[in-house]
Design a binder for these strands. Structure first.
Length: 450
DNA sequence: TTTTGAGTTGTTCGA
DNA sequence: GTCGAACAACTCAAA
């Protein structure tokens, strides 16, 4: 059983298949994880630490039998299979651009040895490639995708295997956590913590999720994204517990967004790195410079932007509403190509997922799946006022503004003495940059239309 | 093939 | 302060 983004025992079709195939005379199922530098490369310290902790938790759950190897899976997986005499290597299907290529090459390498790679199940409620429009093409708009997704239905989660005989093989220890920035707090890793988090969400926030999910100060989202990223829980398990209320329905739609973006990426593998739609191909961008660095550091002078960028560094996680606000700021106030922001997010986010992250960025940038409104430029002050009305979120993450009350918390440059405690003045004028963004979009569209 | 309806998340301006 | 219109016409999905 080659584990990848499925670090759990419950609701795990591939693991069940591996158990079913094990005969009484066999040594059992070997749990293998390969530390692949191609996948570790884009991840920062927070995400790596979370991954390593998930691996340690899985190792504990299976009695210390997790076999960790380091290297290229194309070499490592066949070598381990040969060592233990495994005829079949089970895994969950990976639909990402790298994973697809890697698994094809691993399957070929195994086949040369008379062995088989058997992928089964996916990290999604509805696997990428399963749903099509009436015309047989992949979806590119969310709402019709959601209707098809909902109509398709989701299988009931299979139970965990009752007793697994875990085989033993030499491996490397799970690496120690990389040095983490001072003050970084990570969620508890692993399958058990995922279950506890979901139980708490159902208990406390799910019923009011539809309204409160948009208030970063309320912190009322599920915070399940890191667990979904590494498969500590399968979305099927979550969906099985949801009811019909407005909050539950809204949460179901967010899980469908995750499936949608995975589907879009699988149908358009290049869209992880390049614009999905060519309409803005001639768009004029600025290279990331000191302003982009101020964005990364949370020193733009716009409180909700800086609060978000500081939460990102402090937790490896960022509230969804604020992801949109800070992304809009980089793309439309600083005129930086979305790919630069997407890469920073993948480095800093514990939940950094190629499909959701990069297509979320493309949605903001106007190069992705969302049709039309290129003129949607978030105003950081207006966004702060409407989604963080009393400034709770801003004051939590920007201590310089801890004593600012009222409307000024979202525009501290209007205070009589300017921003307090050394908090910076705005690095750009929003109204001016908004006009500039619209001008560039207009030019790109005229150019594309010719 | 053509037509029609609709598209996660917005902002600004003027009445 | 609130409300509706304009932004500018594009692409997707289904009838």
């Amino acid at each position: 059983m080659w584990f990848r983004r499925d670090l759990r025992l419950a609701d795990h079709p591939a693991l069940l298949a591996a158990c079913d195939e094990t005969a009484a005379a066999d040594p059992g199922v070997l749990a293998l994880f390969v530390l692949d530098d191609t996948l570790r490369g884009p991840a920062g310290a927070a995400r790596l630490a979370f991954l390593y902790r998930c691996l340690r938790e899985l190792d504990e759950r299976i009695g210390g039998r997790l076999c960790v190897r380091t290297g290229d899976p194309v070499e490592v997986v066949p070598a381990v299979a040969r060592e233990i005499g495994a005829g079949t290597v089970h895994c969950s299907t990976d639909h990402g651009p790298y994973g697809t290529r890697r698994d094809r090459r691993v399957a070929e390498a195994l086949a040369r040895d008379g062995r088989e790679l058997r992928p089964l199940g996916s990290p999604y409620a509805v696997a990428p490639g399963r749903l099509h429009t009436a015309g047989g093409t992949p979806f590119r708009v969310y709402t019709p995708y959601y209707r098809a997704w909902y109509a398709h239905g989701v299988r009931k989660p299979p139970a965990a295997p009752r007793e697994v005989r875990w085989a033993r093989a030499d491996g490397d220890p799970v690496p120690p956590d990389p040095a983490l920035p001072a003050g970084l707090t990570l969620p508890t890793a692993g399958e058990e913590a995922a279950g506890a988090r979901f139980a708490q969400f159902l208990d406390a926030d799910a019923a009011r999720y539809a309204t409160r999910r948009d208030e970063p100060g309320a912190d009322a989202t599920s915070r399940l994204s890191p667990y979904l990223k590494y498969g500590c829980v399968h979305p099927r398990t979550l969906l099985a517990r949801l009811g019909r209320g407005e909050g539950h329905e809204r949460f179901r739609m967010e899980l469908a967004w995750r499936d949608f973006y995975a589907d879009v990426l699988a149908a358009n593998p290049d869209s992880a790195r390049a614009d999905l739609t060519p309409a803005l191909g001639g768009m004029e961008y600025d290279e990331p410079g000191p302003d982009a660095q101020a964005w990364r550091d949370g020193r733009t002078g716009f409180p909700i932007v800086d609060a978000g960028m500081r939460q990102l560094l402090a937790e490896g996680w960022l509230h969804n509403r604020v992801r949109m606000i800070v992304a809009s700021f980089l793309c439309k106030d600083l005129h930086v190509w979305w790919g630069h922001g997407a890469r920073w997010f993948l480095r800093t986010l514990v939940d950094g997922d190629l499909a959701s992250n990069n297509h979320g960025w493309q949605w903001v940038a106007g190069t992705g799946t969302d049709a039309a409104p290129y003129f949607r430029v978030f105003n950081p002050v207006a966004q702060g006022r409407s989604h963080d009305p009393d400034g709770t979120y801003v004051r939590r993450w920007v201590p310089e503004l801890a004593d600012v009350t009222g409307r000024a918390v979202h525009e501290p440059w209007t205070l009589p003495d300017g921003p307090p405690n050394g908090y910076p003045r705005p690095i750009v004028g929003h109204a001016q940059e908004r006009r500039e963004a619209l001008r560039r979009y207009g030019t790109a569209r005229v150019r594309a239309a010719r």
